[in-house]
Amino acid sequence: MSQTHPQLGSVEGIQAVLRERNYIADLPMATALRLVMALHKPLLVEGPAGVGKTQVAKTLADVLDTRLIRLQCYEGLDTAQALYEWNYPKQMLHIRLTENVGESVAQREAEIFSEGYLLRRPLLEAISQDAPPVLLIDEIDRADEEFEAFLLELLAEFQVTIPELGTLTARHRPYVILTSNRSRELSDALRRRCLYLWQNYPAFDKEVEIIRVKLPGINQRLAEKVATVMAHLRELPLSKAPGVAESLDWAQALVSLHKESLDLPILEQTWGVILKDRDDLALVEAQKHRIAELVA
């Protein structure tokens, strides 16, 4: 892959390429992506919501000019939704249509359990591609422990076993990125198969840079003030701390309202863009004068 993208052969090169795609990657993230490509190991990214965990997979697919295959995890996710399912109505129809053809049971079984009757779900899709895709397994902590155990074979060997068809091995190993918000502890077995990266809220300078890159129309001073307020809010015991996505939404809202600076009335008018909980609003309201002083 580094032959088609010479810059991807070094950590600095990856940072530069991602930046061209408006993704500001720090050194740990760029190193992680370098190792994902070099070692072909899955990357487990943990961190609070809204710090850009999902975005990195999208950007990587963009950089590699390959397909992004996304599996959104939730409680109750099973192999039928994640891996494959047989097309039962089509199979039933085939059985009916071939009733009087005179084929043996074994022949008929082989026909209806062939690839033509297979519905490929994201995981199977990911290992069947001609070019290595980016497989994003999003919010793995939301899936059940049973599903996590099932993933082990896929992540270690990049192969899956379908009883009717046998073991299918990946033609090209996908670049796998798993994300987790730590709503539950993942198993050690899964962790050992992955590279591990903790992604925290961005530091002040990085957040300013992100805002400026994503919203070229914003002035430096306003971007700094937005980052200052967000950093302060994240220190408060909020039930839903605002992430980078909220910073961008807020900055976008301020630009749309033609605001060049921040003051108390503007803060009060736009809290709703970044705070999504009544208790959080009450807590921040109590501190609004202090926050206004911060950006004065």
């Binding site: 530091a203 002040f204 957040e207 980052a227 950093a231 220190e235 408060l236 015991p237 911060l294």
Partner: peptide, 21 residues
């Protein structure tokens, strides 16, 4: 340094100093 931010590189002392909670 991040003005009151719990950023990636915020040190512990700074965190304690600037953390309202």
């Amino acid at each position: 340094s991040s003005p009151g931010g719990l950023g990636e590189t915020a040190g512990k002392s700074q965190h304690t100093q600037n953390n309202p909670s």
